[in-house]
């Protein structure tokens, strides 16, 4: 198996700026990165360093300005809105706040993702959603409305939602920031073990130092520049060997 032959994310020379003319503020400077299948990568850096902007570019939520970026085979520097939508359907998202639909139960919040996959029947969608919620330890909370779940439980529902439709990539934005340290740690460990189990790559933006150890690799950003490409070298080497 040659893990490096087809990177999940491959970008180089990415520049990005908000505003025009006098007000133009460049956020990303000549950013390049590669993420391999099955890799868990943490993107850290102080706030305002541009990490969330990079994440939204990779997610296909912003239009590329300069440079090249290919995610899951979609060349984002030359693409259409419809293509971006299709890319996003292959990605599992986890947000800072859980962003669950408050009028649905835990189960419905997970199952609703299959509305994007018409080939999955309601019965199958339900079964897979139940299974995924059992995996995150919420098998006994299936019918709970979101308002009756704790913060950690909500974020675990969000994890289940992100993973249920077998995404080829998981993007997470500060998934622990709304949680206390213990709960945050638990949720991320769960996410890590599920990702490893199903061989899903994760790119996670965080500045929570307590969860850095779940990563195969940590990238830091400073003022729009990537400063460290491979902090967690042993883990990286392991992946490159195809382990």
């Amino acid at each position: 198996m040659s893990a490096l032959s087809e990177p999940i994310i491959s970008g180089h020379g990415i520049n990005f700026a908000f505003g025009e003319g006098e007000l133009r503020k460049q956020i990303l400077f000549d950013v390049g990165l590669q993420i391999q299948p099955g890799e868990i990568v943490l993107l850290t850096g102080p706030s305002g360093s541009g990490k969330t902007t990079l994440l939204t570019l990779i997610a296909g939520l912003r239009t590329m300005q300069e440079g090249e970026l290919t995610v899951l085979g979609h060349a984002l520097h030359r693409t259409t809105q419809q293509d971006l939508l299709e890319l996003r359907r292959k990605i599992g998202f986890i947000f800072q706040a859980h962003n669950l639909l408050p009028y649905l139960t835990a189960l419905q919040n997970v199952q609703v993702m299959f509305n994007l996959h018409p080939e999955v029947s309601a019965k199958e969608g339900r079964e897979r959603a139940v299974e995924m919620l059992q995996q995150v330890g919420l098998g006994d909370r299936l019918r709970y409305p979101i308002s009756r779940l704790s913060g950690g439980q909500r974020q675990r529902v969000a994890v289940a939602r992100a993973l249920v439709s077998e995404p080829q990539l998981v993007l997470a934005d500060e998934p622990t920031s709304a949680l206390d340290s213990m709960t945050g740690r638990e949720v991320v460990s769960q996410l890590q073990s599920l990702a490893k189990q199903f061989h899903r790559p994760i790119l996670m933006v965080t500045h929570d130092p307590r969860i850095l150890d779940v990563a195969d690799r940590v990238i830091s950003m400073q003022d729009g520049h990537l400063t460290t490409a491979a902090k967690n070298a042993p883990a990286m080497a392991q992946i490159e060997r195809g382990a």
Partner: peptide, 9 residues
Amino acid sequence: GQGIPLSWL
């Protein structure tokens, strides 16, 4: 598709 009446809920 999933039999969840989103709009009504």
